[in-house]
């Protein structure tokens, strides 16, 4: 019996992660999803947030800004819009980006720009949360 599944995290630009995992936690559009091997086929949109890839003792965290997940019993494909591994993130840069996003939200009145800025802000906040948690 297989106790692990194949994981592929890719963005349009590059492959971010490829490997085995015993469990996967993803930020689904309708709430956080925990996926174990032999899950039935699932297709879901993803929200910005952290992706946790657990393989026995090891745990890898990847930040994604939204995308899609396809689950097959022994293979999971995550097509992320943008993704970066937690180890590569830079806190100062994220804080600066978050501030910029906040300013954009405050200075806008309404319309699609506001929605964009809010999405950006949500993304930056999620990134920061992941990074701070990791530091602890």
């Amino acid at each position: 019996m297989a106790t692990s599944m194949e994981i592929l995290v890719a963005t349009a630009e590059r492959e971010v992660y490829r490997g085995e995992a015993t469990m996967l936690v993803v930020p689904g559009a309708a709430g956080e999803l925990g996926i174990l091997p032999r899950h039935s086929p699932l297709l879901s949109a993803l929200k910005p947030g952290e992706l946790r890839i657990i393989n026995g003792e090891n745990e890898e965290e990847v930040f994604i800004s939204g995308g899609f997940i396809e689950v097959q019993p022994h293979k999971v494909t995550i097509l992320a819009d943008t993704a970066e591994r937690a180890a590569d993130m830079d806190e100062a840069e994220i804080v600066a980006a978050q501030r910029r996003a906040e300013e954009a939200v405050n200075s806008q009145q309404a319309g699609s720009d506001l929605a964009m800025a809010e999405a950006e802000l949500a993304m930056m906040t999620a990134r920061l949360k992941l990074l701070r948690k990791r530091r602890k």
């Binding site: 349009a12 559009a29 309708a30 699932l42 297709l43 879901s44 949109a45 899609f68 396809e70």
Partner: peptide
């Protein structure tokens, strides 16, 4: 066979086709 969809098949399909 079919997937389980979240939130629903149309939203997912629409987003996927664009991408």
């Amino acid at each position: 066979w079919d997937y389980l969809y979240e939130p629903d098949s149309k939203v997912v399909l629409d987003g996927l086709m664009r991408r």
